[in-house]
Design a protein around this nucleic acid. Structure first.
Length: 709
RNA sequence: GCACCCGUAGCUCAGAUGGACAGAGCAGCGGAUUUCUAAUCCGCCGGUCGCAGGUUCGAAUCCUGCCGGGUGCGCCA
């Protein structure tokens, strides 16, 4: 099955060139869907835009184009009927016979069916990196991670289906400040256990710290206790044993983490200190986690237990993420994880490279924004300016806003990590060698295999980070690393509650993904049970308990995913259970139901006649059949558009329209009770093609289809 | 203050790169059930496309200025 739109574009482009020679060469024929089906299926709007340049009226341009088309197509039967209308529109109506022949040409169903949709030609095949999900391993996944995970996964599926080489990258937050906190949390958990107390202590103290009257006393007690516990295990051996034996649950880590958070923010401004027994260094209570990070980043042998604690925390945290991924049915695997820590050793090299390469504007740099790297207020910064010399990014005082590469205390930030990650993704030892001035960076890169060689990178990250990505992309272009690479920030809005504020639980915490999925399945199950009497009334087979569970899972998860994907991603979206689980309208259950109905017909028609059905010629005798057949044939162009724009909702819209046309067909065109065997066979095959289009589309959205519901 | 995103029917949203009278769903009203799964379908009602200018043969879409909502803005990620 080829893209109808793609073929029309080709034919019209050829006609433009033959009608207007060089004036028509390389011009987009501007073919679109026609708003009003009474006018045609597609329309070509190029005549109006070309008229002035050619010194002709739009009607004349259109007439000559139509003439050129008929010359080009005179050898075979014309696939469409053309009509010039209005100021110079060329209306295109595809002939019924043509639609029939396209539908009849689709190959029979196969495993991993694709309705004969071709992959991109080898020459246009790209290596595409999709960076998505990227949870912070210090915290459990919450709704904030939902959109990135779902949207990114859909894009991965669509781009892979198109035939591109897609590499998933789960850029988890496994390094930096909060990691000091999580290690500290583990340590507190260890100390707590040693004292024989429960995590209730954490909760109690967190509460006490929020009370101004109790704060000082509690803090002093915590500091003293902390010091005593630390001195009891100077070499950290006991702590190490605790970790190695995995004597803790991930769920206990959360209250401990919140406790550490509370202690550090409460200790802000106090002069309480903890003395590190290993080196006698006095560390403010408010920045113990920073101290841990500093030791971790230094990576000396003495800090072995911290490193081990870090690995343990990452592992147990990732296990939770993997459980969620499996439940969501997303493609992410542990092998896709390449977190911040992966790039850690490249960071000094990145700083060195930037200092050398961007010391002054690059000669012959044609980038829209120039970048200069220099030290400012002790921090290594990249400053950006427009060609006229004014700052490209401004801070609150109107001064130039830099991207900070290295803090004045020598620590690196996520910008640095993102630059390193981009280099790793773009570079490739043979396909895209990048000349680096820093020997350290070059060595570090080649130690990691030399890079992924991406032609396109999609960062599926929330809209609030837009400024960051603008800076990042500007820096990459200024460095010349991004030459020939398409960089895209696939941004999306926040998930809001019914009150139009960030979705939160009643107690004000962000909603955990586990709880959200539980609720989705619970509600979907309620729908299944509600529907049971009606199924019985209709004489359908009763569903087994196991089957009901599967339906609830597929519908619940599908509804959550679809609600997210069906909306234009750049705007915020309001989370509503009733809406996403509704049967009418643009929802997952509606589409899944349409598929289940088709499967029911197929079962009744007798599955043994599959081969016969696939061979039967399709005749589109009723308008509803024509409309449905056309929509089926528009799947390829829809997938092209999604791959190009990275907008999954275009696919949702397509599937909804396909289902709506199916329902119309269903009303007017009996299949099993068709007037004769030929019509019946034709309709059975049309139904089969619709089911396949629906299943392919839903699977590309990451939604499972059900044979019965 | 500056930058970005958003503003379309009572509600939730489509309308990518400008195209013909602006489309869905929900809610409201009225119909269809001896059913190929009614978890469905059909009809009606409902819009100064935030406002004002401008560009264009043509603007919800592009430009400028306002109004309203959100987000971001040097050493967090």
């Amino acid at each position: 099955m080829n893209s109808l739109l793609g073929e029309l574009r080709e034919v019209f482009s050829a006609a433009l060139e033959s009608a207007f020679a060089e004036h028509g060469r390389g011009i987009d024929p501007l073919i679109k869907h026609t708003a009003d089906p009474a006018l045609g299926d597609y329309q070509c709007n190029v005549a109006m835009s070309l008229a002035k340049r050619l010194g002709l009226t739009p009607r004349e341009v259109a007439d000559r184009l139509v003439e050129a088309l008929s010359m080009l197509l005179q050898r075979g039967p014309a696939p469409f009927v053309l009509q010039v209308a209005g100021p110079g529109f060329i209306n295109i109506r595809l002939k019924r016979e043509y639609l029939e022949s396209c539908l009849n040409a689709t190959p029979p169903e196969q495993p991993s069916d694709r309705l004969g949709i071709a992959t991109v030609p080898t020459g246009r095949r790209q290596t595409i990196v999709v960076d998505y999900s990227s949870p912070n391993v210090a915290k459990p996944m919450h709704v904030g991670h939902l959109r990135s995970t779902i949207i990114g996964d859909c894009l991965v599926r669509v781009l892979s289906f198109a035939g591109h080489e897609v590499t998933r990258q789960n850029h988890i937050g496994d390094w930096g400040t909060q990691f000091g906190m999580i290690i500290l949390a583990l340590w507190h958990l260890f100390a707590l256990r040693r004292r024989g107390e429960s995590t209730e202590t954490f909760v109690r103290r967190t509460t006490e710290l929020s009370n101004p009257l109790q704060r000082a006393a509690t803090l002093a007690q915590i500091a003293a206790e902390h010091q005593a516990e630390l001195d009891r295990d100077v070499d950290g051996r006991e702590f190490y044993e605790f970790l190695r034996a995995q004597r803790f649950q991930y769920d206990e880590l959360l209250p401990a983490y919140q406790y550490v958070n509370a202690v550090e923010s409460a200790a802000e401004g106090s002069d309480l200190r903890i003395v590190d027994p290993r080196n006698g260094q006095a560390v403010p209570l408010a920045s113990v986690s920073n101290h841990v990070v500093a030791m971790l980043q230094r990576g000396s042998d003495a800090d072995e237990q911290e490193l081990f604690a870090w690995r343990t925390a990452v592992q147990s945290s990732l296990r939770r993420c993997t459980e969620i991924y499996e439940r969501l049915g997303v493609l992410l695997r542990d092998s896709d994880v390449r977190g911040e820590s992966f790039y850690h050793d490249l960071l000094p090299g990145v700083a060195e490279e930037l200092s050398a390469a961007l010391a002054e504007p690059r000669a012959g740099d044609t980038s829209a924004i120039r970048a200069v790297c220099r030290v400012d207020r002790g921090a290594l910064c990249i400053f950006f300016e427009k060609p006229d010399g004014t700052p490209a990014f401004k801070g609150p005082q109107g001064d130039s806003l830099p991207m900070i590469i290295r803090k004045s205390d020598g620590a690196y930030l996520y910008s640095t990590t993102d630059l390193a990650a981009a280099l790793f993704r773009i570079a490739h030892p043979t396909r895209r060698p990048i000349r680096l001035r820093s020997a350290a960076l070059a060595a570090g890169l080649s130690a990691k295999g030399g890079g992924l060689g991406a032609d396109r990178i999609a960062y599926v990250v929330g809209a609030p980070q837009k400024l960051h990505f603008e800076m990042l992309f500007s820096a990459l272009r200024a460095l010349g690393w991004a030459d020939g690479v398409r960089l895209e920030h696939v941004m999306f809005g926040s998930v809001l509650g019914e009150d139009r504020k960030m979705l939160r639980t009643r107690s004000g915490d962000s909603v955990l993904l586990v709880d959200l999925l539980d609720e989705a399945e619970r509600r979907a199950r309620a729908l299944v049970d509600e529907n049971e009497p009606k199924r019985a009334e209709m004489g359908l087979d009763p569903l087994s308990e196991d089957h009901k569970r599967r339906i609830a899972h597929a519908v619940g998860v599908g509804a959550v995913k679809y609600a997210d994907l069906s909306q234009n991603r750049s705007s915020d979206y309001v989370f509503s259970w009733p809406k996403m689980l509704a049967m009418q309208g643009n929802t997952a259950p509606y589409l899944m139901y349409a598929y289940a109905r088709l499967r029911s017909i197929a079962r009744k028609a007798g599955t043994d006649s599959h081969a016969a059905v696939d061979a039967a010629p399709i005749r589109l005798s009723h308008p509803a059949e024509v409309a449905l057949g056309l929509k089926i044939l528009q799947l390829p162009e829809t997938l092209d558009a999604v791959g190009e724009s990275l907008l999954p909702h275009l696919l949702c819209e397509y599937l909804y329209e396909l289902s709506a046309r199916l329902m119309a067909f269903y009303e007017h065109c009996p299949v099993l009770k068709a007037e004769n065997a030929e019509v019946r066979a034709s309709r059975e095959r049309l139904c089969g093609l619709t089911a396949r289009a629906l299943r392919i589309g839903l699977e590309l959205l990451g939604i499972d289809v059900l044979e019965r519901m």
